[in-house]
Write a protein that binds this DNA or RNA. Structure first.
Lengths: 349, 349
DNA sequence: CCCGAGCCTGACAACGTTGTCCAGGCTCTA
DNA sequence: TAGAGCCTGGACAACGTTGTCAGGCTCGGG
């Protein structure tokens, strides 16, 4: 009896009628279920003629293997999760793309989500990905406590943290040399004669922001320059806050002659402020930004390689899955100072 | 007999030992399987005391529901797929983020992949997403024939095409007014006295590129200006090709006095070329670019709202899933001319 | 004291696929 | 011509979850 009406308890939401299954294909081709499975998976042991009949039935019915069932059976999903702060941030685009390319090379799909810099949302996302049984996770953490991941790690979910370290668990980490990069950037300003140098960065609870501030402090200390509290401003990176911070440093009795900005968003806002400003103020920014070379003056930056961060992390992830990787490690990628003019302006008192 | 060694044919790759299941939780809590299910899903009909015992067992074992099995049973995955050209392109970041936000509001996860402007890769990705049984698809098409999607549409996979229309199938489409935007941008140059205006765009097989070229031609025709072949250049948007095209238009016996660029990547490269150029050349670009206002002169652009494209598409997708949407439709979002200086330069002959 | 209503709870099948295992038919050789 | 061995194909169970359904319990009313 072909074409029997199966399906007993379908959801009402399912429209059109549901998808054909291997059973349907088998019935139509007049073969057994397992034979269809063999054809679909390219396994050996099927006559050319039988294979043709099966292919024909697949074509005719529009059959597509149901990966949920497959995953349930096999245990691996061939997909990895990526949790980052904001997909729309130009820094994360290339990183995300790099992760995707590595995943693709390993035959895996990428599922991603934005945490919006919210620890709860990060956890929610990560656990949702685990419930889908992703094979691995690349996480740019928003929170600083990742003990909630312990059962997942034990269960064998490969995990790599990028851009910022994991909190309170032992895991692979790939970061840029935030401390060293900031230190070199500030030293560059000092080398060009600046002493009153401002620092505007992200919220101090964010690891990268703290590290870059540490780099700033070290460079200043190394040069024997005492730092005034009014020279440092940490907080959210929305344009309003940053603008106020920059204007504060540039006015008053003891204005800065140079500013070091803690990330791409801050840099962009500060460039705007400086453009409206009469006095020439030197600027070095963390993170490269597009068109930085075409501004007047060109913007000197400490560039990190977002694509390399993503690639390195993803490659480690798949090595964890291979089993070729045993101990968690911390990898630090170097930054690169790109001089374009803004950092070489002399102090204008 | 508790702690019996289950698992017969596990993959060798699975490390540590596999995850606990509802069965394990049930055994530990001393309740039935279904009771665990009820607790996990917050269904009514469980005593506070029983619930407490189950929660305790879940906690102790680090249980996490397996969504593959759930999907297999329920038919819906609560995830949607997004296929775009390149995650690293600044235009797609906000679009992607907007889709994600709408998905999140509907409790769905986002799976995405880059087609790299390759029709085969697009198809491969889309079908992989369908095999995972995503509830819906948002596609920025690379190819121009989407008949391969017909079985999926019939099976009820909600689908919306964004930025470019679908090929050879009837589906929802959300696009910008590429034709009108380009026409207005070029008319703006004409209004400022230009007659010899160049057009540099993407490959003509890409729908947006063709539409923008059509807008250019219309504006020129409306002004009664005959267009020389040497004023138009279509092709890949890599910097080398664009640079040659721009330099070609700017030299020779009859150089252009203004250039209209067909997308953000082209615009950036042309800005670089013009910066090296002695003569002032007017420029209007399609797509807004960051820092465009800070260049000298500021870059006049025809801006499209990438986030609105993504949001609109995703909202339509979920309305399809609700069943509140019946007929496929084509939605066109307006563009906006933002004048900043480069488009208002007079012709310098 | 008995019976029915109502509430909890658990046994069971089904979702679609893949791994295991066996049967039947074939070829090849002695 | 018989037996061994190979190749093809199919029956069946299992993956982990959820919907159905029925059983057992308590409680209140007659």
């Amino acid at each position: 009896m072909p074409e029997t009406p199966r399906r007993t308890d379908r959801l009402p939401g399912t429209r059109y009628g549901s998808r054909p299954t291997m059973k349907d294909v088998a019935a139509r081709a007049g073969v057994g279920l397992k034979t269809v499975s063999r054809v679909v998976n390219g396994e050996p042991g099927v006559t050319a003629e039988t294979e043709r009949r099966v292919q024909e039935a697949i074509e005719a019915l529009g059959f597509r293997r149901n990966d949920s069932a497959r995953v349930l059976r096999k245990g691996r999903t061939a997909s990895i999760g990526l949790v980052l702060e904001d997909l729309a941030d130009p820094f994360y685009g290339p990183l995300s793309r790099a992760v995707e390319e590595v995943a693709r090379a390993h035959g895996a799909l990428l599922i991603n989500g934005s945490s919006a810099e919210d620890a709860d949302r990060e956890q929610e996302l990560v656990l949702a990905l685990c419930a889908r049984r992703v094979d691995g996770l690349v996480v740019i953490p928003a929170g600083d406590d990742h003990r909630y991941l312990e059962p997942e790690l034990k269960a064998g979910v490969a995990t790599v943290f990028v851009d910022r370290p994991a909190g309170k668990i032992d895991a692979d980490v790939v970061v840029s040399d935030n401390y060293g990069g900031a230190r070199d950037g500030v030293a560059h300003l000092i080398a060009h004669g600046h002493r009153r140098i401002g620092f505007i960065g992200d919220m101090p609870r964010i690891h990268t922001a703290a590290e870059r501030l540490r780099g700033y402090r070290t460079a200043m200390a190394d040069a024997g320059i005492p730092v005034a509290d009014s020279w440092m401003s940490l907080g959210v990176t929305d344009p309003e806050r940053v603008r106020r911070a920059a204007e504060g440093m540039l006015s008053g009795p003891d204005p800065v002659t140079a500013i070091f900005t803690g990330n791409n968003r801050v840099t962009v806002t500060v460039i705007r402020v400086l453009a409206e400003h009469a006095r020439r103020v030197a600027l070095v920014g963390f993170d490269d930004i597009e068109l930085a070379d075409l501004l007047q003056p060109g913007v000197t930056v400490v560039a990190q390689d977002a694509a390399a961060l993503g690639r390195t992390a993803a490659e480690r992830l798949f090595r964890q899955l291979d089993g070729t990787l045993l101990r968690p490690e911390r990898i630090e990628l170097p930054t690169r100072l790109i001089t374009r003019g803004s950092g070489e302006l002399p102090p204008a008192d």
